[in-house]
Design a protein around this nucleic acid. Sequence first.
RNA 1: GGGCGUUUAGCUCAGCUGGGAGAGCGCUACCCUUACAAGGUAGAUGUCGGGGGUUCGAUCCCCUCAACGCCCACCA
Length: 888
Amino acid sequence: MEIENNLPKTFDPKAAEDKWYAKWLQNKCFKPRPGKQKQTFTVLMPPPNVTGKLHMGHALDATTQDALVRFKRMKGFETLWIPGTDHAGISTQAVVEKLIWKTEKKNRHDLGREEFMRRIWEWKEQYGSEIVNQQQKMGVSCDWDYSCFTLDKIPNMAVNKFFVMLFNEGLIYQSDYIVNWDPVLQSAISDAEVEHKEVKGFFYHLKYKVKEDPTIELVIATTRPETIFGDTAVAVNPNDERFKDLIGKTAIIPISNREVPIIGDEHVDIEKGTGCLKVTPGHDFNDFEIGKRAGLEIINILNKDGTFNKNAPEIEGMKPKDAREEVERILNELGLLLDKKEHIYQIGHGQRSDEIIEPMISKQWFLNTTAMAEESVRAVEEGEMTFYPKGWENTYFAWLKNPKDWCISRQLWWGHQIPVFYCKKCDAKWAAETNPSECVECKDTNIHQDPDVLDTWFSSGLWPLSTLGWPDKEAMKEKGFDKFYPNSVLITGFDIIFFWVARMMMMGQKVTGHAPFKHTYIHAIVRDKQGRKMSKSLGNGIDPLDMVGQYGADAMRFTLAAGSGYNRDLNLDPERIEGYRNFVNKLWNAFRFISPYLDKAQNELPVKSEWHLHDKWILAELNTVAKTMNEAFDVYRFDDASAAIYAFVYDKFCSWYIELSKNILNGEDEKAKIIRATMLKYCFRKIVNLLHPIIPFITEEIWSHLESDQKRLLAVEEYVEFDEALQNDEVLEMMTKFIDVTSGIRNIRSSVNMKPKDEIDVKLFTEDKKLAKFMYESRHFLKDLANVKSGTIRNKHQERPKKSASLATVHTEIFIPLEGIIDINEQVNRIKKDLEKTQGEYKKVESKLNNQNFMANAPEEVRTEVQEKAKLFQDKLYSLNQILESFQ
RNA sequence: GGGCGUUUAGCUCAGCUGGGAGAGCGCUACCCUUACAAGGUAGAUGUCGGGGGUUCGAUCCCCUCAACGCCCACCA
């Protein structure tokens, strides 16, 4: 019989992707709507930087969040997923500056602040929309009406409101402090933005003279001799017997011959270096602290671009590297350089500029985080917010249990300008939420705003609040602040636990008294297949959109979901995407198979009494998968969810249920045909339903062909739930045995190199009467599955056929009489090998049963289990011996 | 210097509160069987990093060693 099929042999992702994304938008599927759970579910998308293209990390972010959000939406939660983009201060400004320099040979100062800002906004418009386009290609189901940019009106209000609040509380303050100065960006950066890297340098030993006693030679070890121009003391440990008498005396700095005090400070490590420390409070974090304790003078010897200033006349205008060589030369001339040894040490580099950070004193704004950090630690310790996987809370605590004041000002233009105003006339200084026109004190109009902008994470930290309208009352009402705050879960990578998660916690708690989300799921970092970080310089990056183009969004999403559990790395090989593309295509072809029978299918399942054993089996198996997936999604085990449905579709549904259905669908029994067609359709509806959160496009496409009476999109359909009534252990056992026997027959066929066309006669021996009956009833299926022409089923008391190709399972012996055709020795060896293996396994359990300690100590259920196993192995050994005898 | 993590089949990784070692990919053989060659059937592969301990029993718990990775830390 010819069956018509107009569907293409391979699934075309592109057509489905565009079609269904548009449909979902058109039907407002991504808008929150109250459902049967009577609860909300809110997720906040980590806003990508507007600096350009999305990478694989974003794709993983998008996939895990979208899978979860689609799942919860189908479960009947009022689901909201909020998208947005981040202005990303330094990176964006740097990208645009570079571009303008390349095309026009102008820097930002040439253009002026206003014009430069206009250019960045132009750039933002272009890339912001490109990002949205890319996200939509991956199928993200966020509510675009909530879309937000960190420099939009509301987030801007949020920043100002929060700043003013903390300013007035005295938690935000301005101070001359030693900061991490990035000489390329010419801005301060926060501690978190400094990366320590190993560099090769030298250890210099310098000779200092002591004014009071010219016979003493102080030897000081340093890696930075060029900073002696900024030294204002020499420090020794007051407990150091060698030097404690020197405290109070005066040291003479080489070259400049300045006189500085010798002081005692516990910080000096007696063991390290020479035990004498040069103190440069202006350019070293430790020394700054020592200086504060001793009330030392601070000398700044650097310009903003990192070159030396007039306080270091011998090296003025030089960069540190040249300056060091010059100082070394002079010291040598003076005979004050005693030693120079190679030395490897860690040194801070700017995360953005990759340039060596110079500690420098400057006036910056700081946020005192001590109290807030304590609250945020408490929230996690008391379970108000939980990390998945739990281990990541260590990273979070490491940061928050030792909080440092956060340097929040940046000497940039792109960002939120600090809302602090100064009066030229009366020197008043105040913070204001909206730009004032006159001085708060003297009402003079000659006022100006602080030129610096805020660290980009300042606005990111307020993101859970501002995206829901805070602090604008009307916007909060409109966006449902009370309903959707706190968010349900935050999904992100571990690299921004400090930068972002911790700050959102602190700021969210500060404003509302509640943690901004209940869970934080930390997903892996995507690496290349060798485990290396994807980077431009290595050229090993994989562009998610290329993958979508090549294999389809569903294939890429399934790959990322399948690789995403509680692991910290996800090594992505494009071959794996190809593998899952094949799975998507498999699903498509399974659908092609059932599609011709769909018009026969009923919308309701027949009464249970009419279910075939196959039907009961597949529904029970499907039911188990539904259970696994529901549980896995709830704890962010996307890998478990993916693996469960993958195995079901391949190993249960396609390999057995569809194969077993062919005989019925092509048979004469009309009623059986209708029941089977109905079952297939029913199962397929459940399968695409279960898969939809992971691979939304193809499932929606197939669903559109499976719709029954109501025309609902799958995206808003109810998710499949576990149903106790469908469980059926007896049927599972029967089918497992049936599959054992069928595979056994195929195994024998394969072992004697039989062609698929060759028909065979099979003789089965089993003590299981139910199985015998079922095998008899399934004889037509055995013809389809293993080309069995004829056969018999007997109990094990009957005589076995001689010299047959044979095999034993724990419950059934299989004989295929082929005397004269097969190689007897080969068969005997095969059985002997199996016998040996089974004996080994039997011995293991037997020794347990003979072990009195085991019998005395092991729990009863374990003992029973072992006993049952022993019985099965005994049965199999008996059968194998029977087979061997048949060769005698 | 401090902390965290990893080490299981050729590769990438699962293995929950201890109870006979798993998946995917890859590999081998045979097959264009009327959903699918982006496929089917069958098959091979592990001293669970090394050593010690606890236990009737350890991939799992404890100690120790080794290798690799990451994070934090004030550049003597």
